[in-house]
Amino acid sequence: MKIIACVKRVPTTEVQAKVAADGKSIDTTGFEYMLSFYDDLAVEEALKTKEKHGGEVTVLTLGPSESSKELREALAKGADKAVILVDPAWHLRDARSTAKALAAKIKELGADVVFTGRVATDRDQASVGPLLAAYLGMSCVTDVVKLELGAQGGNAQRESEAGVETVEFPLPAVLTCDKGLNEPRYAGLKGIMAAKKKTIEETPATAVPNASRVLKVELPPARKEGRIVGEGAAAVPALIAALKNEAKVL
């Protein structure tokens, strides 16, 4: 089975956002980066799928050359190949532009199943997975929390507002991974040593002009200063009065 894990390097969840001087982008000075939380699940599911069905796992990203740190870790966990579609301005691409460049590479590599995270924790779009499926003509299930995969297709569970949906899909497919699907493994020493010898392919990402333009980046307005209404159960009547008379939410 040809398996691709499509991942993204994102700012760590601890970062504080600052608006850059142009007012149209985020000042990334001092940011540290990590593999997007849900993409870690995608790597794990790709490795599990290989262990069960055989085949080859390629980890693919679009980003800066520095993404090699995150890809090297995926190699250490057992991925066979890693590819960076290099674009120093990766963070300025819109979702369509990113997906089109990734889809072009996936087409070239060939894939029976593409795993990616439910959402990247920087742009919060949750769009690239289904966009890839659309551009590649693959089936797609989003937010997968449980998966049974066969040679021709499978069924996946996803959590919606209604409950737990069981979704049947044919291969090839793009599956986006949600928390609960698996517990990502840690790389062992042997894997880390082996990964050092593997080469990471770096090729320029296909240029795809954005079909959108950023007008403004803003920080959320500071919240009005609140107040402590009191201590312990004795403060409950004061809180109820405030919710009723001031906030008018009760």
């Binding site: 979702a95 779009q125 949750a126 769009s127 289904p130 499926a133 659309a134 079909a211």
Partner: peptide, 23 residues
């Protein structure tokens, strides 16, 4: 922007070759 909505959004945007904007 519900579970079904955001899923549908990107599929529709992909088919129309448009940029999706979620949430």
């Amino acid at each position: 922007n519900t579970s079904a909505g955001k899923d549908l959004l990107a599929r529709v945007a992909g088919a129309l070759d448009c940029v999706p904007f979620a949430d």
